[in-house]
């Protein structure tokens, strides 16, 4: 699955990307995590609070560093 971490480059976005990578490898999920900082893309997702997470082009989370449970939920679909 393709996971995009949306945000204009603050520390929380790094934390989010790292957390997702970590949980993905623990669960053995094949996830490609990518950080997106382009404001145009972020606008297209209609995100206003970052960090936000999109899974396969679908916005699933926004406004905070997701908790482990949230990430697990995002990865297990």
């Amino acid at each position: 699955m393709r996971i995009e971490v949306l945000g204009t480059g603050c520390k929380k976005c790094d934390t989010t990307a790292d957390a997702i990578r970590e949980v993905a490898s623990e669960l053995g999920v094949d996830a490609e995590v990518e950080k997106v900082t382009d404001p145009q893309v972020i606008m297209q997702y209609q995100v206003m609070s970052t960090p936000a997470v999109a899974v396969d082009g679908q916005l699933r989370h926004s406004g905070s560093v997701p908790t482990r449970e949230t990430i697990t939920g995002l990865l297990s679909q």
Binding site: G7, T8, G9, K12, C13, I42, M43, M48, T50, A52
Partner: peptide, 15 residues
Amino acid sequence: FCSCSSIPLFLGFTS
């Protein structure tokens, strides 16, 4: 609101 969200907020309001 954290200032690192300025850009998404700006675009969200503008759009």
